[in-house]
Computed example of a mutant assay.
Amino acid sequence: MQAPSLFWSVLIGAIASARSMTPMAALSAARLLGRHTPGKLALLDRPLFKYGALAMGAGELAGDKMKTAPDRTVALGLVARVMSAGIAGAALAPSGRERAGALAAVATAVPLAYLTLDARKSAMKRIGQTPSGLIEDALVIAGGVAIVALAVKPDRRG
């Protein structure tokens, strides 16, 4: 059974709603493992982008646990989600539908950022900032890795 054409783009947008850098880190890891995305983006083959995205993904996970970490719905947080979701959504869209994939991912990421923030705040009240963040990290990383793993294919160029 084949997934609907923008299915993976919408799902990666949901991941970006909670962790803006996880979609880019997951795509970069896939490229480093010799996988290719359905959507064509030369950016994914640039070493600075691949390694930078991995570093930013790890940094975001650490920074999120700090008491001074801003909410994901502040302007800069939303801009990061728009950019990450757009790039990842385009990469996971079928070839020729990259723009539609980017739009679908962004349209998912931005409103869900508010819902995931509410869920996180609720969890923080019950179990604290660090435990709720670690649980959210585990769910988001697992989801991002699964989505990318299911959406990409082995690189047959070499």
Rank of each mutant, 00 (worst) to 15 (best):
A104D: 09
A104R: 02
A105F: 07
A105E: 02
V106A: 07
V106H: 05
V106N: 00
V106T: 02
V106W: 07
A107P: 11
A107H: 09
A107Y: 04
T108W: 03
T108S: 12
T108H: 10
A109M: 00
A109L: 05
A109G: 02
A109S: 03
A109F: 00
A109P: 00
V110H: 06
V110Q: 03
V110Y: 11
V110D: 04
V110M: 06
V110C: 03
P111Y: 04
P111F: 07
P111K: 02
P111I: 10
P111D: 01
L112I: 05
L112W: 04
A113Y: 00
A113Q: 05
A113M: 11
A113T: 05
A113K: 00
Y114K: 07
Y114P: 08
Y114G: 01
Y114I: 08
Y114C: 04
Y114V: 12
L115T: 11
L115E: 12
L115P: 08
L115H: 09
L115M: 14
T116K: 04
T116A: 11
T116G: 10
L117R: 13
L117D: 14
D118H: 06
D118T: 07
D118R: 13
D118N: 08
A119H: 02
A119G: 09
A119C: 04
K121H: 15
K121L: 15
K121S: 15
S122K: 15
S122R: 15
A123H: 00
A123W: 04
A123C: 08
M124Q: 15
M124A: 13
K125P: 04
K125Y: 09
K125G: 10
R126F: 08
R126Y: 07
I127E: 08
I127A: 11
I127G: 03
I127S: 04
G128Q: 07
G128V: 06
G128P: 10
Q129K: 14
Q129W: 14
Q129R: 13
Q129Y: 12
T130L: 13
T130C: 10
T130A: 15
P131G: 03
P131T: 02
P131V: 03
P131C: 02
P131A: 06
P131K: 02
S132P: 03
S132F: 03
S132G: 06
S132R: 00
S132K: 01
S132H: 00
G133F: 07
G133C: 09
G133R: 00
L134S: 09
L134W: 14
L134D: 11
L134N: 06
